[in-house]
Write a protein that binds this DNA or RNA. Structure first.
Lengths: 157, 157
DNA sequence: AAATTAAATGAGAATAATTCTTATTATCAA
DNA sequence: TTGATAATAAGAATTATTCTCATTTAATTT
């Protein structure tokens, strides 16, 4: 980044270097933004917040960084149906507890739920095992979302 | 649609009228395309195929129709990570058996699987019930996808 | 510590999926 | 058949994301 100093050392440096990537201010600040929220931020949300600290940062860098972080499993990428991808820190990297999403198809409100997760995870593990074997996939991740109409939108009609 | 005749009566007319929508040639042809494939078609794919029969059809109409069909639960909308949404007919409307998807994150190949579905569905039903109650959602749908690296992409590396 | 080198960046142009606008046309109820 | 109204085609507009390239930076080597 031009004209700004930054770069504290932190936990993710090893993982980044292991992936063959350099530690840069831009990458620091994307992770800083994601570490300080439990919301589902879009690339542009992250851009805005990161810029308030590092005004020179470009949006393309945000996207490039998000790609790498996703690839390394440090963040998770979601599509909640509003036309932009959203990101959150993975559990184990400072993100909140493993959860799934309940999405209102009218207003796009998203509820993170952790209830019922344990049985889901258990079943998913078995399914993963079966699928890996049958289709020769190395499975790295799963996505579960429920869709419906939230109380507010239901009342409106 | 201008300058083309069409419109056979069919099963979905009632459901359409029930939703307050009119039966049009454009809508007929979108459904016709989706009824004749088990692939995951994008809006543009559908546009191309529909145009081969009804050359005057506009792309915007495809999108409008897909929205309505999704809302009515006649088709399902998926994001497989390649930047465009994809659609398939729902089971019960002529679509193939209820299935979930296994997606390669390198080449975007998608495998439909029906194995292991029964246990999944059973668990999902219970989860839905719990979620509906706790969060006051009227749940209409769910999404399960597994992500990984397919055999081909794994061998390449 | 300075030089080196390849990766990363910012800026903004390019791309591409989706949505919007408007004048025209088709559906369907009366 | 006709009138009210929803739906359409065409293409412009929007917007998320990717690409390009000259410049800068991180990390390695001297």
């Amino acid at each position: 980044m031009r004209g700004t100093r930054c770069c504290d050392s932190s936990w993710w440096h090893g993982r980044f270097r292991g992936g063959g990537y350099k530690i840069t201010c831009a990458r620091e600040s994307v992770l800083a933004v994601l570490s300080n929220t439990n919301k589902h931020l879009s690339a542009d949300d992250i851009y805005m917040q990161a810029r308030s600290k590092y005004p020179n940062m470009g949006l393309a860098t945000i996207y490039r960084t998000l790609d790498i972080l996703s690839e390394l499993g440090i963040i998770l990428k979601f599509d909640f149906g509003d036309g932009k991808n959203r990101y959150e820190l993975a559990e184990g990297f400072g993100g909140s507890q493993h959860h799934h999403h309940l999405i209102c198809t009218k207003c796009n409100r998203v509820v993170d739920y952790t209830d019922f997760i344990d049985e889901e995870i258990e079943l998913l593990k078995q399914t993963e095992k079966g699928l890996s074997k049958k289709y020769n996939f190395k499975i790295t991740n799963h996505l579960i979302q429920f869709y419906g109409i939230c109380e507010k939108c239901f009342d409106k009609k």
